[in-house]
Design a binder for these strands. Structure first.
Lengths: 336, 336
DNA sequence: TTGTATGCGTTATCAT
DNA sequence: ATGATAACGCATACAA
């Protein structure tokens, strides 16, 4: 690789001068700076990121943590979208991204150590178990962090508006005339708690009394469980007219179960998803769902993290709520 | 951060001794080595990856390139699966992964330069436009690379067995009694060429004469185009009894088009997908498709790349073909 | 068996 | 405006 000293020789100046010229220092003559830059370009010079990181104590590298309790790796479309937008925004601002995990090779380390080992300037924590002590250690360390869908004290977080999302879905369904609304919710995370609270609150505000059997636990991204709970709902003496699923993918499990009962969507029963993954709008009938603004969340996370890294003195923790949009679809029928 | 010199002071030995002890050099006494390791553990010592990379010329960091011609980012489940398994295997072997892209911040660089800038020990190239000069430059450079689904001369590649996949699908459909088989193929990449050639070859071997109108161009992961081509097929005077789609997602576009024609799957028309994404097996009826072994491809890619990095002297380029499996599903009906 | 010295490529400080 | 020097943390060749 061509390095600074190569340029300095060719230009007949010292390495220090080259470094300054390349970094736009003010105490270098226009002329010299130009000559240096041209030579650097001609030689195809690239700074050595390791040397830079060592010297500056800044790596221009941010860690991304997808620890994935749900097992499916980064394969869920919602998280893929987030990862993709984090990547785009980080790169736009001059940062690379590296995955953070436990246990790199033989070295056993926790997330915090891994981030330190790679001198990450900051870490974006998405899709993690926020009760995990290793996650807590990282999130409360001196490393700048931004969490998604969870807030640590005095830390920046990006939240998708679960309350608003659930409320708009319930109101949409209510406006179509539905009164017997069932809700299958995911595992009890803080996200689930918000959705559940919003579901109950909105129902109460609308004067709906939802029987306890209409609110049932399922598992995110697991069509099987939602299928089973759908069956349980169908076995009730009083059936719901509309089912809200934990997410779009889970709905598919419910879908086949409903078909098995000979029920047609939305003529015999209405359904609602959550996430708004592309698939949901390709299905026929189009799924009524709430599209989480994954791209926006990723972009904001990267932007705020880098802001915090680059301007620590004016940084303040903030919680940003990103609103999604209701996709009306065709799976909720207007009823009497 | 705690560094080697901190340990050396505490142990009353020189930094060199500490370094050797930590790296398991043979010329250190058992006793000293033990003491050093214990002190290091107690202090929570972690090597500085940048300093190491600078000194060793090895970063223990591999680049992953998803340049994404299809625009959907890393959101396609097939690629997500690959990325996930690359990550797991690389980490198991002690490597981190970093995304490689063009244009990091203000610096405009090509893929090769980016990989050099981050001192990547090697790069896995997945989902790229292999005609792109920037890709070619990287793949033919001195940096160890492994490509997925494309082979550069004297380079290692991991290929999904497209010929076998297509053949098994065609034979499956043929065995169900179908003779009029249509094939919507994706953009003309080498993957597509293999599938197309295998389609034609298998049909010929089975004595089938496929009219030219049955073979139509579509776009991978684009339900809309496949929907349009499905419509075109339905407008033919002689219709196919089975349609093979470019991929599972594209099938969904065809599905709604077929429903619009009042055709039921598989009673009125049979369909086949490609990829075997989870969604395909959650749909009812279950989609008949070919599951590409994404996990295996990612694992193998990481393994071979690291092998090449760590043992360059015994390395030989190889092309590994990873076979998937046919998922029978229920969308191909037995006919006459 | 241990320690000393050097350099990886870069930049910041302080002279000139 | 430019340059000499040191230092970031680590690993190695070589000396002791």
């Amino acid at each position: 690789m061509v390095k600074i000293s190569d340029i300095s020789k060719l230009c007949g100046v010292s390495p220090a001068t080259v470094s300054k010229a390349l970094n736009g220092a003010s105490d270098i003559s226009q002329e010299t700076a130009k000559r240096v830059r041209e030579t650097a370009a001609k030689l195809g010079y690239l700074p050595n990121a390791s040397a830079r990181a060592l010297k500056l104590g800044r790596s221009y590298n941010i860690g991304v943590l997808f620890s994935d309790t749900t097992g499916g790796g980064i394969s869920h479309e919602y998280f893929s979208r987030i990862l993709d937008s984090v990547k785009v925004e980080a790169e736009r601002l001059g940062y690379d991204i590296t995955f953070i995990s436990k246990d790199l090779g033989k070295r056993s380390m926790d997330y915090y150590q891994h981030a330190k080992y790679r001198s990450c300037d900051g870490v974006i924590i998405a899709s993690a178990n926020f009760q995990d002590p290793a996650i807590i250690r990282l999130a409360t360390s001196e490393i700048p962090t931004v969490t998604l869908d969870y807030t640590f004290d005095s830390r920046t977080s990006i939240l998708s508006d679960n309350a608003q999302g659930m409320e708009s879905l319930v109101r949409f369904v209510y406006d179509k005339g539905h009164r017997k609304i069932a809700f299958l919710h995911g595992e009890m995370t803080s996200v689930t708690q918000k959705r559940l609270a919003s579901f109950k609150k909105t129902c109460a505000a609308l004067g709906l009394e939802i029987p306890a059997e209409f609110i049932r636990p399922a598992i995110y991204h697991d069509p099987r469980t939602s299928g089973l709970q759908t069956r349980a709902l169908m076995a009730l003496s009083i059936r719901p007219t509309c089912i809200i699923y934990p997410d779009d993918l889970s709905f598919l499990g419910g879908m086949s179960e409903l078909e098995r009962h000979g029920l047609s969507i939305p003529d015999d029963i209405s359904v609602v998803g959550y996430d708004g993954i592309p698939l949901s709008q390709v299905l026929r009938p189009r799924l009524t769902t709430y599209r989480q603004a994954g791209e926006k969340m990723g972009t904001e996370a990267a932007r705020l993290l880098i802001e915090q890294i680059e301007q620590p003195e004016i940084w303040l923790p903030q919680q940003i709520t990103v609103t999604g949009e209701l996709l009306p679809g065709d799976t909720v029928r207007s009823i009497g």
